[in-house]
């Protein structure tokens, strides 16, 4: 479970000066739920998720993952999260099996357990045919499966997915979404960022709309629709943004 309270992140950029990338965010994400962070480019999605994944520190705010403060117990928190984004690359010169072994080991797993889980995951994701082919010879779809496998090898209870379908063809993107659903059904807590309305509509149990670092609406799709004259997430989204700017 993820609890975010008063999360703020300020960058100091030489050229642009002070940038409030995330401003006073507040949300919770439960087990067995896909929590969607919806917002256009530059809204602050990646920054939020990097903070949740302990890659960067928050300027302000308190964030708990499964009851652990992510700043004070970063190492313990990392053990419980899997992170995947469109930018997390793979090592070209390793095979899927080597990749997964490496990530299992750096997550402190024992070899015997790694092998067992790897076999299961490869079977589930239908990866056995290419498990010994070097990554640079794999198709985009195969690579994305490997990325997913990489992020769940240590059986994290929390998945942090930052626009995992960006740059994928529709078939691969659909597969990714199917897997996200199945992880939800396994009871994982999933936080999923996207700028694509249809994706949020199809996948997310809860949606938080952020714009320029601010949370402008939050709720289930139903709740969002109830509070708006519109019936379509896209319309709701633009209405909220316009309101915010006025």
């Amino acid at each position: 479970m993820i609890q975010v309270e008063g999360l703020t992140k300020i960058f100091h950029d030489k050229k642009r000066g002070k940038i409030v990338a995330v401003n006073n965010l507040q949300f919770n994400c439960q087990k067995g739920q896909v929590f969607g962070l919806l917002g256009p480019n530059g809204a602050g999605k990646t920054t939020t998720l990097r903070i949740l994944a302990t890659m960067i520190l928050p300027t302000k705010g308190e964030i708990m993952v499964n009851g652990l403060n992510i700043v004070k117990h970063a190492a313990k928190v990392r053990r419980q999260i899997g992170f995947l984004s469109s930018e997390t690359g793979l090592y070209d010169r390793f095979t899927p099996r080597e990749t997964i072994r490496f990530f299992g080991r750096i997550n402190g797993m024992e070899d015997k357990i790694i092998e067992k889980r790897m076999a299961e995951i490869f079977q589930n994701l239908d990866m056995e045919d290419f498990q010994d082919v070097r990554v640079n010879k794999l198709s985009t779809g195969m690579k994305q499966k490997l990325s997913i496998a990489r992020s769940i090898i240590h059986d994290p209870s929390v998945l942090i997915l930052d626009e995992p379908t960006v740059g994928l063809d529709i078939i691969t993107a659909r597969t990714v979404i199917e897997y996200v659903k199945s992880f939800r059904d396994q009871g994982k807590c999933i936080i999923y960022s996207t700028h694509i309305m249809q994706e949020a509509e199809k996948l997310c149990d809860m949606i938080a709309i952020i714009h320029q670092g601010n949370l402008i609406a939050q709720g289930t799709l139903k709740e969002l629709k109830k509070n708006s004259p519109f019936d379509d997430l896209e319309e709701i989204f633009f209405e909220l943004i316009n309101q915010g700017e006025n």
Partner: peptide, 13 residues
């Protein structure tokens, strides 16, 4: 450049 560094950071190392 290849974006693999983030995955190292979210590990026990």
């Amino acid at each position: 450049e290849r974006g693999t560094i983030a995955t190292l950071l979210v590990s026990q190392i």
